[in-house]
Structures are given as structure tokens and as C-alpha cells.
Design a protein around this nucleic acid. Structure first.
Length: 708
DNA sequence: GTTAGGG
DNA sequence: CCCTAAC
């Protein structure tokens, strides 16, 4: 029985004191903590059943290039990475669709079918094609007969960040069947409404930018925030065009713009008579700063951070992105296929409650897209940010480096042959939730022992192995790797395995239909939070060691950081399923250490005066920044930081200011001169628009000052 | 502590 | 991203 084999192996792995890998625990004792047990599990002697001595070779491109993690010098390359062995196990399960692998191989190789891949659609410049509309990838499931029910589920899930979301409009309301005009994958706005008494977070809107992509038609300079929606303490969603929304109790929520279309001052008070109803004219997600001065703008925007346990009031409600950029998700529609090699595969989008296979084309190259030079920055687009904080569970031989995009024909030929096999390396896994009770006088050794025992107990309870693609569970065990689009090594970066205790699986399926309106927030929040957590690790470890905490709780909250996996994985959150626990592999840590360790080193490094690790802004972050600046203007970086990036502690307001500077520069130069992660032209247009606007405002202000 | 700007 | 001047 394959599962038994896995269990046996995992138990041995955990029990074995010198397994050469990392068993990582996220400990949220005071808030979060991490125990790294690498040394405990290091050994040459460790063997899995069936291990023949072969070692899956780590990918060069990711080795030793992470500036965050330095491999231990005394770590012999001959050491067996037991996690890779685990990869073998998991791989075997993959190979056996019914999870009935009889044997456990050390280097599982999958024989696949044709391994040609098409060029991946690019989000480089210009308007994104409809193929990249993330909505199209999921809209069908919202067209099901259960849509209403899903909507209800969705609404219930909208208790985000302390928001009581009674009224939610799915993004799919804006994603019509023929919504090929939808161009931009991100610009969904979540609007928080407030009543005149103050903030009233009883409505959460998802605003389509379907029409708002094109620059707002304007003659002359226009307020980038146009149409601004002002009302007394009312946050407004404009550009709705959705009956379901309009039918909702707007609670005094109106879409507003000045009647003559002129920009409205940020805090101008507009009488209701001047307000128009919800309109459909192209506009950016309209967020209104409440006139009530007690209402901070932070209450208007969707927070990009996760609510702190001890702080649930400072989040800025900002646009709501449906998902982190996920190129492959945008490839459902092959209206404009860009093909290098014509091969169609099936890419399964895994909806919450149904299994559908959509025909799509995937590829391994990005048009006009240069990968970053550094490996630690060359993660797949959709995973980059998350990965940077080690929150993604990824499996894959290597991130694509610049080499990967400029392969010679020889290399390509070679890779064609290599593509016959799918190598899965799992280099680390996590025990997300464990609870430990320790006396204050407990030693570190006893702590280790306790953690070990807890882990053993966890593993002893039985495990499920689930395969995640882009963070979504793959339910169809009968799909082939080729069909899933995960056979190619360049696609494996979206693949992840999660080992979870028995019982979780069924729980995960509960009430999980429909679009989770909180998903985007949670995703982004989680990843922001995860980034933030890194700065807490040491302090919390210290706190626990100082005896100030008697209880350490190892949570599995990190699971929600999986891309698109929130719908599923968030259900594993301890608060909801306290008994749930899961092991999740994040083999991106090919160096053998979890990325969290990276953050610790980075953390300490930041205090040693070393240069911080470069952490490129993701498109989602850029969009957040752009929208924040649109609303707040330039020169208010502290506010931007506090309100939008409050939980992204690695983003200082100086960083935000610098990023804006570079964005403006980027927007001004020719596309071919731009480097790094391509920023959608739509965003760059908004950057220039906002920049110009606020510069004019500044000039006006100075002019007025000089006159006076 | 923030902001702006050069590097 | 870093550094620093200016506020």
C-alpha cells in the first residue's frame, strides 16, 4: 500500500535523529515562531526503503544563488537529502494515480507523453489579452446552477480582517460569458463601505476593471482617481455595471463623481445631490476617502496585509486582487496563442467543488520577458513573492533563469529528451500545526524533544497526500501529468505536495464552493504577513526561550499562502479546524533549508549592516502601490506604507518611494529598455497619470503658496 | 521620524 | 536598495 509506505518513511524520517533535511515548524507561541531542526535531521546514514543510493541532483540554478541562504560549508554534497527521498515517495504517488504505489523509488521518473510546450502568454506590455483574464478561468464554475449557493458561501467567508461582509459581489459578476474584453488580471477592487456614522464594513465589493483598463477617456489632465467618489463616510465602488450589485442595499453607497467630470479634491465634500448613481464608465476602482476625518483612508482600501492578532484596525482596504498573478491561469483562453511549439495539453483548473478540465495551451517561455539574473529572484511570476518568504509549496527542478529563456537549439533538443521524465524533488516539508506545552524551565533540548514527539504523533495519525497545482488541490487522480500541464519541468514550479493528516481532506471539502471573496485578501495578506513574520521569528523565539511563554502553538496558518489554494487551505486554519494539521512541502528550498530560515538570516543580516536581499515588487504590489499613490498622492509614503503595506514589513516607506520612482522611470522608457518583471502597461499608464496629476497638484499648491 | 533625491 | 541631506 503506497500510503503505508509513505507513512513508514515519514515516520522513520521524523524519528531518525539525523535525517539530512529540515523539519520545520512554524510556531506561533506568542505570535509566530520557527523551529529549525536541520541539524537534528542530518545524517549520511539515513535511508529510505528501496533507496538505491542515487541522489536526485539539485538544480544548479537554484543552488547557492539565494542571497538569503548560504549552504552550510560542512554539508557534504554526498549527504543524502532525505527530503528528496520524500520527493521520490510523493513522486511515486503521482505516478500511481490511484495512490497505490507498491514501491518507493529513490528518483522517481515519470514517463510522459509529448512534452512540447507552447509559449506562455506574456503579461509583458500592453493590454493583456483576454487569454489572461483570470476570470475566464473560473467563470464557468460560477455559471453552474450552484452559483447562488456559492455566492452565499462566499459571503459568509467574507469576515475578513474584521470586516463583516454582508454584501458581496463576486468578481464573476463582472466576468461575463463573453468577457473577452477583460484585459487585466488584477484590477479588481474590493470596496468597503461605510455609513455616515463612520466606517461600516458591511459591504465588500469586487469591482471589475473590465472597462477601466483603458485610460479614462479624457481631454486633458484628469484626476487619476477619476471618478472619485465622495460621500460622507461612504466608500464607493464604481464601474460596477452589475445588477446583482445594484440590487444590493447600497446603504447610502453611491458612485460619485463631479458632474462636470472635473477632478475632485481628495477630501472634498460632495453633496449627495451631485452624486450619480452607480455608473459604468471606465474608471479605476473608486475608493473614497471618507469625509469623516476620523476615518482614515486605511479603512477604505483593502489591506495588503493580514490582520495582526493584536491589531485589527489599521489595515488599509485596497483593491482586491482576485489572485496573485498567475500566468498559467490566464492561459485558458487560447484566443491569441503564441506558439513556439504547437502542442496542446490540458490544464486543469481545480474549482472548489468540481473538477473540470479546460483545454488550454501552456508554454515554457515568456514573450519578451526576461528573467531576473538572480535565481532567488527568478521564481515563477506567480510564485515569486510568496516564495520569497517561503510560503509556497513548490516542487520543481529549478526556477527558470535567464538561461532558460535563451536556450540554444541544442539545449532545447536536449530538454525535449529530458522532458520525457518528470523529476520531482521535494526538499523540505513543514509541520504546520502542533501544540506544545512546556514549562518555563524547559530546556531547548526538551523543546526539541517535544516537537519531535508531536511531529511523530502527527505523522502517526495517518497521512493524505494531495497534489497541488498553483496551490489548488488536484482532485482528478486520473489526469496525467501532461494533461495537468505539470509534466514539464518549467511547469513544476507550480506543483506542490501537501501531506496532511487523515481527516483533513474531507474537512477541506466542506463549504468550499464558489469564489471566496476573502481569498484575494487572504492570499495577499497571508503573503504579506508571512513576509512580516520573518522579522518576528527571532524575537518570538527569544520570548519563548525567556520563559515568557509557556505554550507554543505550531500552527498551519501558513498553508493559506499557497497560490489559489486559499479556498481549500484556509479551511485548515487552526481556528476553523483545530485538529487539522498538514505537512506541506516547499521544495523550492532546494538548498535544503526552508526559506524561513532565510528570513532569519536575512533578519539578522539586516542588523549587521549588510545589504538587504533584493525583493522585487510583484505586480500585485505594484498595483497596490499605484492605487495607493493615486489616492494619496506622492510624498505621503508613510501613509502608503501604513495603510497599504502595513504588514509587509520588508517594505519601508522609503522602499515604496523608491519603487514609485522606478515605476515612473519605467513608464517613461521604452518597453524594450525595461528590465525585470514586466509591469503591465496599464499600471505604468496609471503611474504616469497619477504622477503627472500629483505633480500638477504640487505645482498648483506651490503656485498658490507663492501668490499668497 | 519623514521625505526627497543622488548613487 | 543604500545613503544622506533637509526638514
Amino acid at each position: 500500500m503506497g500510503m503505508d509506505s509513505v507513512l513508514t518513511i515519514l515516520r522513520q524520517f521524523v524519528k531518525h535523529p539525523k535525517a539530512s533535511s529540515t523539519l520545520e515548524f512554524s510556531i506561533y507561541g506568542i505570535s509566530s515562531c520557527l523551529i529549525q531542526m536541520e541539524e537534528t535531521f542530518r545524517s549520511k546514514k539515513f535511508h529510505f526503503p528501496g533507496y538505491d543510493g542515487a541522489l536526485p541532483k539539485a538544480v544548479r540554478t537554484s543552488r547557492g544563488q539565494s542571497s538569503c541562504y548560504k549552504k552550510s560549508k560542512n554539508e557534504s554534497p554526498t549527504y543524502l537529502n532525505s527530503i528528496e527521498l520524500l520527493a521520490t515517495v510523493a513522486g511515486q504517488f503521482l505516478h500511481d494515480k490511484s495512490l497505490r504505489a507498491e514501491n518507493v523509488g529513490i528518483e522517481e521518473v515519470f514517463t510522459t507523453q509529448t512534452m512540447n510546450f507552447n509559449k506562455k502568454a506574456s503579461i509583458s506590455h500592453g493590454s493583456l489579452s483576454s487569454t489572461e483574464c483570470p476570470f475566464t478561468a473560473q467563470k464557468s464554475k460560477y455559471q453552474s446552477l450552484q452559483e447562488q449557493k456559492k455566492q452565499e458561501n462566499m459571503k459568509r467567508k467574507c469576515a475578513i480582517e474584521g470586516i463583516s461582509c454582508k454584501d458581496v459581489v463576486s468578481r464573476n459578476d463582472f466576468c461575463q460569458e463573453d468577457s473577452k474584453d477583460v484585459q487585466f488580471p488584477v484590477p479588481i477592487g474590493a470596496m468597503l463601505t461605510c455609513n455616515r456614522e463612520g466606517i461600516s464594513t458591511d459591504k465588500l465589493f469586487f469591482i471589475s476593471k473590465e472597462d477601466g483598463l483603458t485610460p479614462t477617456p479624457t481631454s486633458g489632465m484628469q484626476d487619476p482617481r477619476t471618478p472619485l467618489c465622495h460621500n460622507s463616510g461612504v466608500l464607493e465602488a464604481s464601474n460596477i455595471g452589475c445588477d446583482s450589485l445594484k440590487n444590493k442595499d447600497m446603504g447610502g453607497c453611491r458612485s460619485m463623481t463631479s458632474q462636470d467630470g472635473t477632478p475632485l479634491p481628495l477630501n472634498s465634500r460632495v453633496s449627495e445631490e451631485t452624486l450619480t448613481s452607480v455608473h459604468k464608465q471606465p474608471c479605476t476602482p473608486c475608493i473614497v476617502k471618507p469625509v469623516d476625518r476620523h476615518l482614515e483612508l486605511s479603512q477604505n482600501l483593502v489591506s495588503l496585509g493580514t490582520k495582526d492578532d493584536d491589531d485589527n484596525s489599521s489595515d488599509l482596504f485596497f483593491f482586491q486582487s482576485t489572485e496573485p498573478p498567475e500566468p498559467s491561469m490566464h492561459l485558458i483562453d487560447n484566443a491569441h496563442p503564441i506558439q513556439l511549439q504547437q502542442t496542446e495539453v490540458y490544464c486543469q483548473e481545480v474549482p472548489a467543488t468540481e473538477t473540470r478540465i479546460k483545454r488550454t495551451e501552456v508554454g515554457d517561455q515568456l514573450k519578451g520577458k526576461k528573467r531576473k539574473r538572480h535565481v532567488d529572484q527568478s521564481m515563477p511570476d506567480e510564485l515569486q513573492c510568496l516564495d520569497s518568504v517561503g510560503k509556497y509549496a513548490q516542487v520543481g527542478p529549478a526556477p527558470v533563469t535567464s538561461k532558460g529563456l535563451h536556450r540554444s537549439m541544442k539545449q532545447k533538443t536536449k530538454e525535449k529528451n529530458d522532458n520525457l521524465h518528470v523529476k520531482v524533488n521535494i526538499t523540505s516539508f513543514r509541520v504546520p500545526e502542533l501544540s506544545l506545552n512546556l514549562p518555563e524551565t524547559a530546556t531547548v533540548a526538551s523543546l526539541k524533544k517535544a516537537v519531535m514527539e508531536a511531529a511523530v504523533n502527527l505523522l502517526g495519525g495517518g497521512l493524505h497526500v494531495c497534489v497541488l497545482q498553483h496551490g489548488k488541490r488536484i482532485y482528478d487522480d486520473n489526469s496525467t501529468l501532461v494533461q495537468m500541464g505539470i509534466a514539464h519541468k518549467d511547469r513544476l514550479d507550480s506543483l506542490a505536495f501537501m501531506l496532511e493528516p487523515s481527516g483533513v481532506l474531507s474537512t477541506n471539502n466542506v463549504g468550499d464552493s464558489g469564489f471566496d471573496c476573502s481569498k484575494g485578501i487572504e492570499q495577499y495578506s497571508a503573503w504579506m504577513e508571512s513576509a512580516s513574520n520573518m522579522t518576528d521569528v527571532d524575537a518570538e523565539m527569544d520570548a519563548s526561550n525567556n520563559g515568557t511563554s509557556k505554550e507554543l502553538q505550531i500552527k498551519n496558518g501558513d498553508l493559506i499562502n499557497n497560490v489559489d489554494g486559499c479556498e481549500k487551505l484556509r479551511l485548515c486554519e487552526p481556528s476553523e479546524i483545530p485538529q487539522a494539521a498538514a505537512l506541506i512541502v516547499h521544495p523550492q528550498a532546494e538548498h535544503g533549508l526552508p526559506v524561513e530560515i532565510v528570513t532569519r538570516e536575512q533578519h539578522s543580516g539586516s542588523f549587521s549592516g549588510k545589504r538587504r536581499t533584493r525583493r522585487p515588487f510583484t505586480v500585485l504590489e505594484v498595483e497596490a502601490l499605484v492605487q495607493a499613490v493615486e489616492m494619496l498622492g506622492t510624498g505621503r509614503w508613510r501613509e502608503v506604507k501604513e495603510q497599504v503595506f502595513s504588514h509587509a514589513r520588508h517594505r519601508t516607506y522609503v522602499d515604496l518611494k523608491d519603487k514609485w520612482k522606478t515605476l515612473v522611470h519605467t513608464a517613461r522608457i521604452a518597453p524594450h529598455q525595461r528590465r525585470g518583471e514586466p509591469v503591465p502597461q496599464e499600471l505604468l499608464d496609471r503611474v504616469l497619470q497619477a504622477h503627472t496629476y500629483w505633480m500638477m497638484q504640487l505645482a498648483k499648491q506651490q503656485e498658490d503658496t507663492s501668490i499668497c
